[in-house]
Design a protein around this nucleic acid. Structure first.
Length: 565
RNA sequence: UGGGGCGUCGCCAAGCGGUAAGGCACAGGGUUUUGAUCCCUGCAUACCCAGGUUCGAAUCCUGGCGCCCCAGCCA
């Protein structure tokens, strides 16, 4: 190993796989799968699972399937399957020709159910949903047997066949596994494995079926059918593992995959629950699944996050069984690291303040040169028009300088990035005392050279008032103002923790002229501000719209806050 | 009061009986025409607590404590 190589991450799942390989299990194969239900968009928590499953397959020269767990047509939708495929692909993973649907196996699953009935290990139950719940018992008391539990095999076979044939209405009967109503594990108390659902057009199987298998029955068998070796899922399925194993032990299947559970990802100041994200979209709290404030893959993509940064994030947070709550700073650090290296630099003024350089000849325009990246010559250089009138950011000027302030102040000097040193001679205000313009003078000897006999500490960015382009800039902040909006322990609904200032739209920004026609999705660093990308939806037809991906680390803001507090 | 898990730095997380990796964050310093980046330096005598085994314990044993999950014909 050379020292530039990144060591492959170590985690308990890889340790288990290593041990299995050493013990010669599965003929040395490693085969995983990512099994989303197409009932919503993927979020950052799914990214963790995708990176884990596909990442392991890659590192162990194995394979990873994409399998849609589509057993509940009531909630599922073809729009979601397309979006999920796009997201997985965008993250950089390839399922090759192994795109599967649990619904591909409906006939096999049905046959397995029949086999179970024949073994006396499943029965048709006529209890209502409410009755089943009553019979199930509680966490501390055992349940009691259904009156239909002793139904003869022949009758079960007949009834199950008629369930499939559509003879019975929704909710009238279910097929149940016959296990143990007194089990301390609720999942083993004769779980339902098939239910009747009429009048639903399944996105894959249409109206072929009116009975649909449940997750516990479907998942383990789908895994076995596909020859999965390691079935990775989240912690809440740990209690289901005995049931996962029970079906595979009772039935004759091609193999018996090993289920391993890891903890889900929680990220501060957001929610990672499909149900809650759906709520935000459907009730209009955000502008859709791809709203740049959403922790969805689609949202992160539109915000400007790169696939590599998300993969890096998933690697940094690790995989364990411990409950965790990851700080946003980790995600932000990942995208900053990627973009610092790869994003070309540009200048953009977000809060324009006009400057007239009085000793600069009227009508004169200079073409100044600037590097596209301070450390990467290969990214080239660009021309910047400079003239008598420019814009700087209003935050870069103060009439009175606070302590440690090193930007432009009345009577003081500052360096214009990639240009000259200027001095502020006069402040022009309107009738309300608002600063509307600055009169300055420049030092012609300071282009690419330090001024004579004095030090100028500050450097600020600018855009030519005559050449700058109008742009809209959207500044995003955290979606919620509570670190754990859905677990605040204050009795409030998570939506009450929504941050009202999560979006600020600046409509009168100026960007350097070279940004004309910037490609949708293109990412830049606006120097001294942050990383921005051209919005893929709204930036078109000459209208420039930029999303702020993340700000630059801001030590000055920290100092200012300390001075204030 | 049933069952299943988890507890190592502010947040993640390695560690698998031989004397606490790493990342983020934070604090200090250096370079810098981005208060960015980059580069140094510091940051758990300590692994939920209490006992025990051992020459030696975050790792093994016993007993506590705390937190999470489970009573869908959802996944």
């Amino acid at each position: 190993m050379t020292n530039t190589e990144v060591p492959t991450p170590s985690n308990f799942i890889r340790n288990i796989i290593d041990a299995d390989l050493k013990a010669n299990k599965n003929e040395g194969r490693v085969h995983t799968r990512f099994p989303p239900e197409p009932n919503g968009y993927l979020h950052i928590g799914h990214a963790k699972s995708i990176c884990l499953n596909f990442g392991i397959a890659l590192d162990y020269q194995g394979q990873c399937n994409l399998r849609f767990d589509d057993t509940n047509p009531h909630k599922e939708n073809i729009e979601y399957v397309e979006a999920i495929k796009q997201d997985v692909r965008w993250l950089g993973f390839d399922w090759e020709d192994r795109l599967y649907f649990a619904s591909d196996y409906f006939q096999q699953l049905y046959d397995y159910a029949v086999a179970l009935i024949k073994k006396g290990k499943a029965y048709v139950c006529d209890l209502t949903a409410d009755q089943i719940r009553e019979y199930r018992g509680t966490l501390t008391e055992p349940g009691k047997d259904s009156p239909y539990r002793e139904r003869p095999v022949e009758e079960n076979l007949d009834l199950f066949g008629r369930m499939r044939a559509g003879e019975f209405p929704d909710g009238s009967r279910v097929l149940r596994a016959r296990i143990d109503m007194a089990s301390p594990n609720m999942n083993m108390r004769d779980p339902t494995i098939y239910r009747i659902r009429h009048g639903i057009v399944h996105h894959q199987t249409g109206e072929q079926w009116c009975i649909y298998p449940m997750y516990d029955f479907t998942h383990c068998l789908s895994d076995a059918i596909e020859g999965i070796t390691h079935s990775l899922c989240t912690l809440e399925f740990e209690d289901h593992r005995p049931l996962y194993d029970w079906f595979l032990d009772e039935l004759e299947t091609p193999c018996h995959p090993r289920q391993i559970e890891f903890s889900r990802l929680s990220l501060q100041y957001t929610v990672t629950s499909k149900r809650k994200l759906t709520e935000l979209v459907e009730e209009g709290y955000v502008h859709g699944w791809d709203d740049p404030r959403m922790p969805t893959i689609a949202g992160l993509r539109r915000r400007g996050y790169t696939p590599a940064s998300i993969r890096d994030f998933c690697e940094r947070i690790g995989v364990t069984k411990a409950d965790n709550m990851v700080e946003m700073g980790v995600l932000e650090s990942c995208i900053r690291e990627d973009l610092d290296r790869h994003a070309p630099r540009r200048m953009a003024v977000l809060h324009p303040l006009k400057i007239v350089i009085e000793n600069y000849p009227e009508g004169r325009v200079e073409e100044l040169e600037a590097a596209n990246h301070p450390k990467d010559e290969a990214m080239g250089r660009r021309k910047l028009p400079f003239c008598r009138e420019i814009y700087i950011d209003a935050n870069d000027f103060r009439e009175q300088a606070p302590r440690k302030y090193k930007r432009l102040v009345t009577g003081g000097e500052v360096r214009l990035r990639n240009a000259y040193v200027i001095r502020c001679d006069e402040v022009i205000k309107d009738g309300h005392g608002e600063i509307i313009e600055l009169r300055c003078s420049y030092d012609p000897a300071t282009l690419g050279a330090n001024p004579e006999g004095r030090k100028v500490k500050g450097v600020i960015h600018w855009v030519s008032a005559h050449h700058g382009l109008h742009a809209e800039v959207r500044l995003y902040d955290r979606l919620f103002n509570h670190p754990t909006p859905d677990a605040a322990k204050d009795g409030k609904d998570f939506k009450e923790h929504l941050n009202p200032d999560s979006l600020h739209t600046l409509t009168r920004c100026f960007v350097e002229p070279g940004l004309a026609g910037a490609a949708p999705g293109a990412r830049f660093q606006f120097e001294r501000e942050g990383y921005f990308c051209v919005d893929t939806e709204d930036s078109a037809g000459g209208k420039l719209v930029f999303n702020r991906i993340v700000g630059l680390r801001d030590t000055w803001a920290k100092i200012e806050n300390q001075q204030r507090g």
